[in-house]
Computed example of a mutant assay.
Amino acid sequence: MRNTLLFIFCLSLFWSCQNSGHQKSEKLNVVTTTTMITDLVKNIGRDSVQVQGLMGSGVDPHLYKASEGDVSKLTQADIVFYSGLHLEGKLVDVFEKMGRRGNTIALAEILEEKDLISSTEFSGSYDPHIWFDISYWKRITKNLTNQLSKQDPESADYYKQNEKVYLKKLDALEKKVKEIISELPEEKRILVTAHDAFSYFGKAYGFNVIGLQGLSTATEAGVKDVRRLSKLIIDNEVKAIFIESSVPRRTIEALQESVKSKGFNVEIGGTLYSDALGNSGTEEGTYIGMFKYNVRTIIDALK
């Protein structure tokens, strides 16, 4: 009887450990740049990794500069994930130096050139905002899983299991996004935002996207940009324009005033998350929650 009880106890303990997650003596030390990548590492690595994100909610990766503390974190990391395609423009020199170590990974560079949107601002460069096409984010997920597995082969099966779960969630997100967008007639799918971050979104989901600033928020909008967009908004009777959480709202407010001065009223439809997720611990603080929020905000304002 005692042996039976002991066996049952050991079995229950075994299953408890299995269900609590992957157990290992040391967690992989992962450093990330953007909040989108930090969220992805948390979903794939879960309790096998210790992730440190350099950028928080509302931080603009185009303008972010590494502090001494950041450099220390980067050099001590087992593996570093950044987006690439010059999104983190002011960190490029740091990453190029670290790239020689072989553990600094630009996740977006797994995408083929034919899939990327060329930049008219920077010769030979591409639009880095690839996370706004969910099908691309699935590829990024697979790339990250493979890179974690190479660095930590002991946990490869665990990462693959988490990848499978997360890809199903992304499938569900893609279905939901298309369902919400179908509420808006095609002729009303004109999206005007603070900077040109949503081109992949437009290409994937059928929107004409215009940013007041260019691909990088380091590029200031000029008077001609404001006049050009004012005319487009009036000619197409666009109901709403959008500010972004990581870009000062003054540019969009200037555009709104320009449109009003010409006798047409355009509303500010809300704040979209572009280069950073929302606050940690909120639904918008996750990639999936951010995407749903953005789409719902856009559709409700433009309907």
Rank of each mutant, 00 (worst) to 15 (best):
F132Q: 13
G58Q: 03
E163D: 00
Q213T: 10
S199I: 00
C10I: 13
L212I: 15
N43T: 02
D196S: 15
G53I: 09
S119A: 11
M1P: 01
T33W: 02
K97W: 04
L40D: 00
G53H: 09
I134F: 13
R189E: 14
K260S: 05
Y287W: 15
S125L: 12
I44G: 03
V80R: 07
K203E: 15
G99D: 13
N208W: 02
K239S: 13
T271E: 15
V259D: 08
S149A: 15
L111G: 05
Y287E: 06
E284M: 05
E121L: 10
A221K: 10
T286L: 06
W15V: 08
D115I: 01
N236A: 04
R101D: 14
Y166F: 15
I44P: 01
E26M: 03
E113Q: 12
K168W: 03
M55C: 07
V94D: 09
G206M: 12
G58C: 04
L212S: 13
Q256G: 07
K224D: 10
G289K: 02
S216M: 04
K203G: 11
Q147H: 03
D152S: 08
K178H: 04
F81D: 03
N265C: 03
T4G: 00
N143G: 10
K24D: 01
P248F: 09
Q50N: 15
T193I: 08
K188V: 09
S67K: 13
F291G: 03
I234H: 09
N265V: 11
G278H: 12
K188D: 15
R189A: 14
I130T: 15
T33I: 01
N208V: 10
L173P: 14
S245M: 01
S72H: 10
S199N: 11
F122V: 13
Y159R: 07
M98R: 13
I37C: 01
W137Q: 03
S123M: 05
S230N: 05
A254W: 01
M290P: 00
N265Y: 12
G89K: 14
Q256R: 15
L6Y: 02
G84C: 12
N236W: 01
E154K: 12
A108G: 06
Y159M: 05
T193Q: 08
Y64H: 03
G89N: 14
K97G: 14
E244F: 04
K176R: 06
G281A: 07
R46V: 14
N265A: 10
T33R: 03
I233H: 08
L40Q: 11
A108S: 14
I140W: 10
R46E: 15
I134A: 09
S230T: 14
E109W: 05
R46N: 13
M290E: 06
V209S: 11
V49W: 05
W137N: 03
G99W: 08
K164G: 02
K42M: 10
S246W: 05
D60P: 04
N3E: 02
